[in-house]
C-alpha cells in the first residue's frame, strides 16, 4: 500500500497528464459527424506515430558496436516514420476531397 502511494507521489505529474489527456481526448472529438470518422481515425493514427520519438532515442543511445541494438533501432525508426509520414499524407489526401467538394458548389 505504502509502495503504491509512494509511486503515485513520485509520478504525480505523469498521472496528471494521463488523466487530463483522457478527458481532453474524449472532449475534442465528442461531436464529430460520421462523414469525418475515417479521416479522423487516420489523423489520430498519424498522431500516435509520435512513438517514433522513442525509437529515435533508442537508436541514438545505442553503442556503435552493438549491432543488434542498431538494427532493431533502425527498424523501429523506419516503421515509425512510415506511420508518421504515411498517416499525415493519407489523411491530407482524404481531406483534399472534402475541400474540393466545398469550393465546387
Amino acid at each position: 500500500m505504502n509502495q503504491i502511494l509512494n509511486f503515485i507521489t513520485v509520478n504525480q505529474e505523469i498521472i496528471y497528464i494521463v488523466v487530463l489527456m483522457i478527458f481532453v481526448g474524449i472532449e475534442v472529438i465528442g461531436r464529430v459527424p460520421s462523414v469525418l470518422h475515417t479521416p479522423l481515425m487516420s489523423g489520430a493514427n498519424a498522431i500516435h506515430g509520435v512513438v517514433i520519438i522513442g525509437a529515435i532515442i533508442v537508436m541514438g543511445k545505442a553503442e556503435a558496436d552493438n549491432h543488434l541494438a542498431l538494427i532493431l533501432g533502425f527498424l523501429a525508426v523506419v516503421l515509425g516514420m512510415i506511420n508518421v509520414m504515411g498517416g499525415f499524407v493519407v489523411t491530407d489526401r482524404m481531406l483534399e476531397m472534402f475541400k474540393k467538394k466545398k469550393s465546387n458548389h
Partner: peptide, 23 residues
C-alpha cells in the same frame, strides 16, 4: 512516454488512446 519521461509521447499517445476509444 512513461519509459522516457517524455511528455509529448505521453500526451500524443493518451490523446489518441482516449479519442480512438470514443471514435
Amino acid at each position: 512516454g512513461f519509459l522516457y519521461n517524455n511528455e509529448v509521447m505521453l500526451t500524443g499517445g493518451i490523446l489518441v488512446g482516449a479519442a480512438g476509444t470514443l471514435l
